[in-house]
Design a binder for these strands. Structure first.
Lengths: 200, 200
DNA sequence: GGCTTGACTACACGATCGTGTAGTAGTTTG
DNA sequence: CAAACTACTACACGATCGTGTAGTCAAGCC
């Protein structure tokens, strides 16, 4: 699965470079010339293969989505909530995830669709695991957002912990901290009901 | 507190416009000319008052941080976990929060410092409320990230719910869903211990 | 062999970017 | 009153952006 860069076609190298740079610097922050240089080709070739920057972005969206689902399928021996989380550390998936989140924040339809599919999956998961929140859809959406949050703020969380959470040790630590969030009830049902009254 | 735009000095209008546009489009996505037009001044005046785009960004960082702390102080009659959340919907705080999150993702030191202060606050809160996770710092960092997550993915969450969560009704809904996440234990302590063994 | 086709490069274009410079109008200060 | 200062605009600069055009080169097909 992991091939040296020489084995990839120029088109694939351009796409991989685009996903990496778009993910790191954002869409506006990565120029076609940067991407071409990263891929070791001329900037004209980027245009030749993808037509325009926007079309390149859409191609990256499609590829990232497809690839994430594919990698996810390979890892679904664990069917619990944490089963999807190793994705974030997967050496191939890491830049993909980074790109997708960036793409979401820039309003990509494909990336947003991936989020919605994640919400669907979490929703089904709550059903099959006998979790019955009052607002199942809302609950699933909140969980989906939470799942991405540690990834989005990885730099900030790493700084807070004094430990890089993209390393196995660091990711293990924040992963277990997240487990505790889902284990320790912060509020009693009574407290929640009281708040609900106040807000009305 | 809410003054018409005419009452603000040009400097303040530039700063407010910069925070709004930087927050919406990112730092690279908002040009000085855009900001100047939004503030109703010439682009040269932006440079006159702030020196450079980077200096403008730092000024926005400082102002947004100071203002958020100030607004937060005004609202701290509620001292519970949700006490800080109404910030996200506060009409003045909304663009500030949006800007700060964007600034974080672009690697701003000031914005990251604000995150770290938030982690400190949550950490103290767990102590005073008798919550004792095995990794208190990690737990606080996870909670801080979670608190921002719904805000970061507000577009995606809104789409998942079919309801704009920046409106009072929608925010109430996702807020209560988050409450349920903190109320329903997803995992038993036993399950967590089993996972911990597997990961080692 | 000639001819098409696709991968690929070099280069030039207009637009837009952040920045620099020069100058005007109004107020303050000595 | 004159000098100085501040807020502000107009305009030009070099760099960089996405894009467009022309052409080279090798492989496959007739």
């Amino acid at each position: 699965m992991e091939r040296p860069a020489d084995d990839l076609t120029a088109r694939a190298r351009i796409r991989d470079a685009a996903i990496r740079l778009f993910g790191e610097r954002g869409i506006e922050g990565a120029s076609i010339r940067d991407i071409a240089a990263e891929a070791g080709v001329s900037s004209g070739l980027v245009r030749h293969h993808f037509g325009s920057k926007e079309a390149l972005r859409e191609a990256c969206d499609r590829y990232a989505k497809e690839r994430m689902l594919q990698i996810g399928a390979e890892l679904t021996q664990d069917h619990d909530l944490t089963g999807l989380d190793p994705l974030a550390l997967h050496p191939v998936a890491f830049p993909l995830q980074l790109y997708i989140v960036r793409s979401m924040m820039d309003g990509s339809e494909t990336a947003t669709a991936l989020f919605l599919e994640g919400v669907d999956a979490v929703e089904e998961w709550t059903t099959s695991f006998g979790i019955n929140p009052k607002d199942r859809r809302g609950y699933a959406a909140a969980l989906a957002a939470i799942k991405l949050s540690v990834f989005v703020f990885r730099d900030q969380v790493s700084k807070a912990l004094g430990e890089d959470i993209t390393t196995p040790a660091g990711y293990n630590r924040i992963g277990q901290a997240l487990m505790e969030v889902f284990t320790i009830p912060l509020l009693t049902q009574e407290q929640v009901d009281n708040m609900r009254k106040q807000e009305k």
